[in-house]
């Protein structure tokens, strides 16, 4: 388990423990590796940190707004100001957090492999861009 996933569990043990238990059950039943949860922060400096994460199909990314600003986590091609700022692998559904208030979380489970490029709607032009690379299991 990654340090980030551990940190999330420490902060909110109950829900995460339940999720972990069911993930464990699923993992042992199917004989596959445990699904992970990875944390990304939205910051005052208009960055997603880390800007790039590499995960596996079935893993979840949780974005935490660690900023005093309102941000979004958006991977919807028609909402991008620049085509280069957004990418969705074949078969993947667009996702959008909507306005994420300070301290709020948004989570998305990735089921299709490939490279996802996403952005923050208000700060796309200021370079607030991120990438999730989802590898097959």
């Amino acid at each position: 388990m990654s340090e980030q996933a551990t940190a999330i569990m420490t902060r909110k043990p109950r829900g995460r423990l339940l999720a972990l238990c069911s993930a464990l059950i699923l993992a042992s039943a199917s004989g596959t590796a445990l699904a992970k949860t990875v944390k990304v922060q939205s910051t005052d400096l208009l960055k997603f940190e880390p800007a790039k994460v590499v995960i596996h199909v079935g893993d979840t990314v949780v974005w935490h707004n660690a900023s005093v600003l309102v941000h979004t986590v958006t991977d919807v091609p028609k909402l991008a100001a620049k085509a280069a700022d957004v990418a969705l692998p074949k078969g993947a559904k667009p996702f959008n957090s909507g306005n994420l208030q300070p301290k709020a979380d948004f989570r998305h489970r990735f089921t299709a492999p490939g490279t996802y490029r996403y952005f923050c709607i208000p700060h796309e032009a200021a370079g607030m861009l991120g990438e999730v690379v989802v590898e097959p299991k």
Binding site: L46, A81, E124, A125, A126
Partner: peptide, 20 residues
């Protein structure tokens, strides 16, 4: 329209984002 660029730097004219 949006006149900040990467790192919130104040844009030059050719860097303005019309749809934000």
């Amino acid at each position: 329209e949006y006149v900040r660029t990467n790192g919130y730097k104040l844009a030059f004219d050719n860097q303005v984002t019309p749809t934000r």
